[in-house]
């Protein structure tokens, strides 16, 4: 089997104390959507943070396009083409929407206007509110700013930590539509989701984690169809 685009391979580690992840593997192919689901405290966010380098691994490795990036800092991974949207405080609240996008592109030295236009095309509401302070926007709009900010570095892979936490179902559907749209442009998406059913519906690949280890791994559709998964994690 060919090496996936991005893979966190057999990751083991935690925040200093006991291990949270136990030989956990997460991977995403080019232009595909991979979703991590699982019960509370399963280590979903931890697994994603490990892939992004915010957690020191005791064992295992992270490879991007075949290159071992396990030792790199999160900032260095951004430069390598990874974008990350944290679950909370993921915007600069007192800065305008446009400035948020500019800050997202801070490491770029070239012209960023084209990328900014792409973001505005993706999230038209942000174009209207470009001069408004991001902290004054609604929850869904703020998530759009957060995703837009991460897109400004033109990442090859975008990582989203529970992007739909705390937004209404309508906004959630819209956000998922946008995420599909982003993946169609060739950007790989790795995302942690609380709303397992909806997330798996758009996922090319799904990872069900339990206690920091892989329990089920399959295509999104297959997991949705799997009676065990349905019973244990999707509420029947």
């Amino acid at each position: 089997m060919a090496e996936p685009f991005l893979i966190g391979d057999a990751m083991t580690g935690g925040y200093g104390g006991a291990d949270i992840l136990h030989s956990c593997t997460i991977a995403v192919e080019k232009g595909e959507i991979a979703v991590i689901v699982g019960p509370n405290g399963a280590g979903k966010s931890t697994a994603m943070k490990a892939v992004f380098g915010m957690l020191k691994l005791r064992e295992g490795a992270v490879r991007l396009e075949g290159e071992d990036i396990t030792a790199l800092s999160p900032q260095a991974r951004v430069a390598k083409g990874m974008g990350f949207v944290p679950q909370t405080s993921n915007i600069f609240p007192s800065m305008s929407v446009e400035e948020n996008l500019e800050m997202g592109a801070f490491i770029r030295r070239d012209d960023i206007r084209a990328t900014m236009e792409q973001v505005y095309d993706l999230f038209p509401i942000l174009r209207d509110k470009r001069a408004q302070a991001a902290g004054e926007l609604s929850g869904g709009q703020r998530q759009q700013v957060a995703v837009g900010r991460a897109l400004m570095t033109k990442p090859k892979v975008l990582m989203l930590d529970e992007p739909t936490a705390g937004v209404s179902p309508i906004v959630m559907d819209e956000l998922f539509d946008r995420i599909i749209e982003i993946s169609r442009t060739g950007i790989s998406i790795l995302m942690v989701e609380q709303n397992a059913r909806q997330a798996l519906e758009i996922a090319d690949k799904g990872y069900v984690l339990v206690q920091g280890a892989n329990r089920y791994t399959d295509t999104g559709q297959a997991l949705l169809a799997d009676p065990d998964v349905r019973k244990s994690f999707l509420g029947g």
Partner: peptide, 18 residues
């Protein structure tokens, strides 16, 4: 702007390469 960003949200500023 990078100063304002840092003042607003230190962690995110770090992530953005500031």
């Amino acid at each position: 702007k990078s100063m304002r960003a840092y003042s607003d949200n230190e962690d995110l500023a770090l992530l953005s390469g500031i």
